[in-house]
Amino acid sequence: MSFIKTTEQSSKYNHLEKMTLKELLSNINNEDKTVPLAVEQVIPNIENLVYQIVERMKKGGRLFYIGAGTSGRLGILDASECPPTFGVSYNLVIGIIAGGDSAIRKAVEFAEDSRTQCWKDLQEYSINSNDTVIGIAASRTTPYVIGALEKCNENNILTACITCNKNSPMSKVSKHPIEVIVGPEFVTGSSRMKAGTAQKITLNMISTSVMILLGKIKGNKMVDMQLSNQKLIERGTKMLIDELEISQNEAKSLLLKHLNVRDAINYYKNGNR
């Protein structure tokens, strides 16, 4: 079957410059409403992948996101939020972007065109067969990502991808392809819109469910979060008040002593006051 880039097809809307602001916003919103429904179609694929990731992480494996441009930035965003949210090491979920960290803020020309560079980037982390590598790309056949996925397959490293086109070259080299088909963008070819939203939703689902299965959530609370600002200290204090039925002063004192909600709960419930 031939590969057709639906994310590059012409928008269903025309003469955008003639629309009122309300029409622009309403039409963008109407297109965005279709994204969660597209993600829903691939939940079984996400489920299979998450089980595989968790199994490997329990053996010491890590999760890598690789991508270029918007897709690479979304991977870095998701990876960077795991340590403060779930209290895990910054070396557990790692985002790598074509062109290096400078490409997070400013595009690096032709960085995504090398089929060998991403594998070299992964080598810096001593990647191994317990790890998982997820390639992220909306509409392109990104050589940077495809080359790395091929090398990962050769080295028995689990591969997956998140893309918004059916039967893409990237899907063909991934053991667990996740194809979220969102259709043409409101602005033709602007895959930072629906495709980017679909990728962000999917990444949220993967990392959050992985962390829950690894025991990083208690009830529905982020009991292992890093207390990196006053807002999070207040949130942690409220968690202790609700869980232990103690006063605010006692809860805050307990939290500041242990600097971790889970540890504070365990300390208190073990009879320590």
Results as ranks from 00 to 15, higher is better:
Phe3Cys: 09
Lys5Tyr: 02
Lys5Gln: 07
Asn14Leu: 07
Leu24Glu: 05
Ile28Thr: 11
Ile28Ser: 08
Thr34Ala: 08
Pro36Arg: 04
Pro36Leu: 00
Gln41Glu: 14
Pro44Leu: 01
Ile46His: 04
Asn48Pro: 08
Tyr51Asp: 15
Met57Ile: 13
Lys58Cys: 10
Lys59His: 14
Lys59Ile: 09
Gly60Lys: 13
Gly60Arg: 14
Tyr65Gln: 05
Ile66Gly: 01
Ala79Leu: 08
Cys82Tyr: 01
Pro84Asp: 10
Thr85Lys: 04
Tyr90Lys: 14
Ile96Cys: 02
Ile96Arg: 00
Ile97Pro: 09
Ala98Thr: 03
Asp101Trp: 11
Ala103Ser: 13
Lys106Gln: 12
Ala107Arg: 03
Val108Ala: 02
Val108Lys: 03
Glu112Ile: 00
Ser114His: 04
Leu122Pro: 05
Gln123Asn: 14
Glu124Val: 03
Ser129Tyr: 09
Asp131His: 06
Val133Tyr: 02
Ile136Val: 05
Val145Trp: 01
Val145Gln: 00
Glu154Thr: 02
Ile157Gln: 05
Cys161Tyr: 05
Asn165Asp: 11
Ile178Asn: 05
Ser191Ala: 14
Ser191Thr: 15
Ile201Val: 11
Leu203Asp: 11
Met205Gly: 09
Ile206Ala: 06
Thr208Ile: 03
Thr208Ala: 12
Ser209Lys: 12
Ser209Gly: 06
Leu213Glu: 14
Gly219Asp: 10
Met222Glu: 07
Asp224Asn: 14
Leu232Ala: 03
Leu232Met: 09
Glu234Gly: 04
Gly236Ala: 06
Lys238Cys: 08
Met239Thr: 02
Ile241Ser: 05
Glu243Arg: 14
Glu245Trp: 06
Asn249Ile: 13
Ala251Leu: 08
Ser253Asp: 14
Asn260Arg: 14
Asn266His: 12
